[in-house]
Design a protein around this nucleic acid. Sequence first.
DNA 1: CGCTGAATTGAAAATCTTCAAGTCTAGTGG
DNA 2: CCACTAGACTTGAAGATTTTCAATTCAGCG
Lengths: 213, 213
Amino acid sequence: MNAPVANAQAKMLNATPIAFPCSSAPVTRVTQVQTYAGGKEIYTPGEKSGTFYEVEFGAVRLHRLLSDGRRQVIGFYLAGETFGFEADRTHAFFAEAIVPTGLRSFSQPGSGDDILKLALRGMLRAQEHLAVIGRQTAVERIAGFLLDMANRQGNLDHFDLPMSRLDIADYLGLTIETVSRVFAKLRASNLIKLQSVRCVQIQDFKALASLCA
Amino acid sequence: MNAPVANAQAKMLNATPIAFPCSSAPVTRVTQVQTYAGGKEIYTPGEKSGTFYEVEFGAVRLHRLLSDGRRQVIGFYLAGETFGFEADRTHAFFAEAIVPTGLRSFSQPGSGDDILKLALRGMLRAQEHLAVIGRQTAVERIAGFLLDMANRQGNLDHFDLPMSRLDIADYLGLTIETVSRVFAKLRASNLIKLQSVRCVQIQDFKALASLCA
DNA sequence: CGCTGAATTGAAAATCTTCAAGTCTAGTGG
DNA sequence: CCACTAGACTTGAAGATTTTCAATTCAGCG
């Protein structure tokens, strides 16, 4: 198995979040790391917000449920990325660990500057998401998604896809079957290679980028 | 003709932006109102940002161009709404007046609190946009779009659509023909009524909302 | 070794896009 | 006042893409 990053702590399972102190405080007071098993909820809609989380390792998914039972994935957060502050005093989404995940939480954001920087980054991310799913075809969306994921993991030769195909589908506004078929097509065209189902190697960056319009 | 709001100043045309002083300063220093004819550029990508704009009347569109010539509309801003600060020091999008429009500009945002509030509101709007175009079918997207527009114009019985069908299409990731057909279908089902091409009356709020999943 | 959930694949049906005519409407000029 | 025009909008039909439903295949785990 080749997954390079996200499964590093795969052995640490089923633990309800356990807090433990942690030294290197980057921005503010309450600094601790909690670990979550894959699939564990971090918060739910309606809970009061005000706490931020930085992903130490693993991956987090934000989503919401539509009234017909479908699910919309709002975003993914990888190691080093921050989430948890939303526009309201109250959370609008579900946050879940996708794989075993460590989160550093900040119950008091530092200066107004810090929180502003985070808000702007959050907006940038939302705009990038918009840019990807505003495209018309499934191939364009998935190519854009893969490039974004590669970029966020340092443009390594190969990288993890910690989320399931269904997560990707719900993120891109497609069905799981379409996602699967587009992956197959990209692989058949030698644009990507799947080292395993959830580990992608981009073989032709330029060609992939040209698909994103 | 029935357009209630956006064309109030339709007679004021072709003016290159003209600045004139204005008294009621809501937040900060440099306060003035500029008017733009429909179709006039407000700023372009690459310009340095730092100035905010509040729409006094009219409507503004943010968009960007894809490499294949297609256009993505990032958002619409109606009277009372604020735009212009983006994640970077530099604008990432085109901003254009859709109809004759008056903008109050703030070259120095007030306190950090003010700018943060605006950033959070901007993020909320981006998330709502995501929620709308993340849906799978054209009917769902347009129903969601109409409800959003109605909501932003005070849930009046009828409201303006200052933007063209093409603008709507580029906003929702659809073609102009699909937008037109869905409007026709909604009208045929008595969910909406078109008082004119760009003035919508929602006849069945609940039914429309139920289409949004 | 056989589960079980995830992922892939196939075929038919539904939806959307594309291309090609129209139609409508506001603005112009006779 | 009325035609005329240009641009926006609508509508039709064919083709392409995507979804849906169903059946396999695959991978990790007891």
